[in-house]
């Protein structure tokens, strides 16, 4: 045993976001889901130009304004105040989702309750109780060239979030292409989880034990090494 402690040695959300940000492509158009995925923008590598899309009709938004500088007609899909970068544009909601479904986005990143090995995603509700709300999640999983998920590798109880089949209500079928977790980077290819990178401290056996479906290995598995201070 390597003595890997699942709850203490895993990556934080910020560290997962940093890892996902390393794959942002120069010149790409990207939609980051509300909440956790939004953190990826903070770690955008220098020298890469990324244009961010938000569902309510803005391309090219930048950082949040200083407190007191907000203009509440200028918000993102999370209803947070934003600022604009040079070259930004506004458009109505139908055009905004044409960008999504029409295949014009390079990358969409969402959160997840469960991801299945065939790329099914469950991220909008966990049961039939309470008030259901879907927003743009079911649209965003269709059309972007790459649909990535950022998530803890396991639930709060230690159960797997990467599974053979989702048990929670689906957001989309066969839509996820890559998962960034607190332990690993996993691609979805031909209905299988393919391990790309993992934390150096966790063994393959330990990683498999907390994954609800078989991890396939093709070629070398890279190491996730997050810089100090993140």
């Amino acid at each position: 045993m390597s003595g890997f402690n699942l709850m203490e040695d895993k990556l934080s959300n910020a560290q997962i976001a940093w890892r996902a940000a390393q794959d942002l492509e120069d010149g790409s158009y990207v939609n980051l889901g509300i909440g956790f995925p939004e953190m990826i923008a903070k770690f955008q590598p220098e020298g890469r130009n990324v244009t961010y899309h938000t569902e309510n009709g803005v391309l090219g938004f930048g950082r949040a304004p200083a407190e007191g500088e907000e203009d509440w007609d200028l918000i993102n899909a999370g209803k947070k105040a934003i600022t604009l970068n040079p070259g930004a544009s506004f458009f109505h909601h139908a055009d905004s989702f044409a960008m999504v479904r029409g295949g014009h986005l390079d990358l969409a990143v969402l959160g997840a309750y469960q991801v299945a090995q065939n790329g099914d995603l469950a991220n909008w509700r966990v049961g039939s109780k309470g008030v259901p709300a879907v927003g743009g999640a079911m649209d965003l999983v269709h059309g972007a060239r790459r649909v990535a998920v950022v998530t803890d590798h396991v639930t709060k109880d230690g159960g797997p979030k990467l599974v053979e089949e989702c048990t929670f209500p689906l957001t989309g079928v066969g839509c996820v292409t890559r998962v960034y977790t607190s332990l690993a980077v996993i691609d979805i290819a031909e209905g299988r989880f393919v391990l790309r990178d993992k934390l150096p401290a966790i063994s393959l056996e330990e990683l498999q034990a907390v994954t609800g479906a078989r991890l396939h290995i093709e070629g070398e598995v890279g190491a996730i090494v997050v810089p100090e201070g993140i």
Binding site: E55, H93, A94, P132, A133
Partner: peptide, 15 residues
Amino acid sequence: ALELVPQGTLAERIR
């Protein structure tokens, strides 16, 4: 009552 519609579908149905 609630009719829940995905956001992009809501926009396109209206369009």
